[in-house]
């Protein structure tokens, strides 16, 4: 099966002071797939996201987006090219209401000078709120939303940008079981609509439920890659998560 590669990292290195956060990362994201990335805390998942989306510049290596070298591009240039992210620690525009949070993203997608009327923007924003299940909260200030609602809003804001590749950083972190189910359904919907999705997660239930392909990172190195079932039973991965003893047992 030869699938189109939409995003590729080539030999990415990133160092923070004495710590090497990423060493020689080579990953490929295929068009239309739902890729999961797992790894213990500090394994470099978020750093990788930051580098792909332009929030950090790699020390070495290149980022290739659909054949274009986008290494060192700023976040807004990446968004323009359809690479959109969410944050592990939610970052809604706190002082704004839910609808305006989405509106700002829509302004950016249509361009500040676009002739798209405010009425159309609001209509579009309401459709997104419907999709993420926050219609009844549109007038509420973002800072008074529950944690789960903030997570949804964050995904909604990303959707407003019509991403080609959506990178979700722990979308279910700190949520209740019911909320997690909502988010899983939402991510599946987004994926079924043709968006390529990359999810970083800790929650194994979520990651096994969602991902078609899985990459495991540990200490800044890719330690396993492939079918999710194979990856989670890979001794290296078990060892990284649970320590040496369990790795031997699981064999």
């Amino acid at each position: 099966m030869s699938r189109e590669v939409v995003l590729e990292t080539r030999d990415i290195w990133k160092r923070f002071g004495g710590i090497i956060a990423l060493r020689n990362i080579n990953i490929k994201v295929f068009k239309g797939e739902l890729l999961g990335i797992i790894g213990p805390n500090g394994s470099g998942k978020t750093t990788l996201f930051n580098i792909i989306t332009g929030f950090l510049k790699p020390d070495k290596g290149r980022i290739i987006l659909s054949g274009e070298d986008v290494t060192g591009f700023s976040p807004h240039e990446m968004v323009k090219r359809g690479v959109v992210r969410t944050f592990q620690l939610v970052k809604p525009f706190m002082g704004m209401n839910v609808l305006d949070n989405i509106r700002v993203a829509l302004y950016m997608r249509h361009g500040l000078m676009s002739r798209v009327s405010e009425r159309e923007i609001i209509g579009e924003a309401r459709e997104i709120l419907k999709m993420i299940g926050l219609s009844h909260r549109e007038d509420v200030s973002a800072d008074s939303l529950s944690h789960g609602e903030k997570k949804k809003l964050e995904i909604g804001r990303a959707l407003a940008l019509k991403p080609k590749i959506l990178l979700l950083d722990e979308p279910t972190g700190g949520l209740t079981t019911a909320e997690i189910d909502d988010i899983i359904r939402l991510i599946k919907d987004i994926h079924e609509n043709g968006t390529t999705v990359v999810v970083v997660e800790h929650n194994m239930r979520v990651i096994m439920n969602l991902s078609e392909r899985l990459i495991a990172l540990n200490s800044g190195v890719v330690i396993a890659e492939g079918d999710p079932k194979d990856v989670v039973s890979n001794p290296e991965v078990v060892k990284a998560y649970l320590g040496e003893r369990f790795a031997v047992k699981s064999r």
């Binding site: 944050f87 809604p92 525009f93 706190m94 704004m96 700002v104 993203a105 302004y107 500040l112 990303a158």
Partner: peptide, 17 residues
Amino acid sequence: RILVAMREDEDAAKAVG
């Protein structure tokens, strides 16, 4: 509105382009 968004969260502002 975009200015206010930047004020509320600079990283999020970058993330919406």
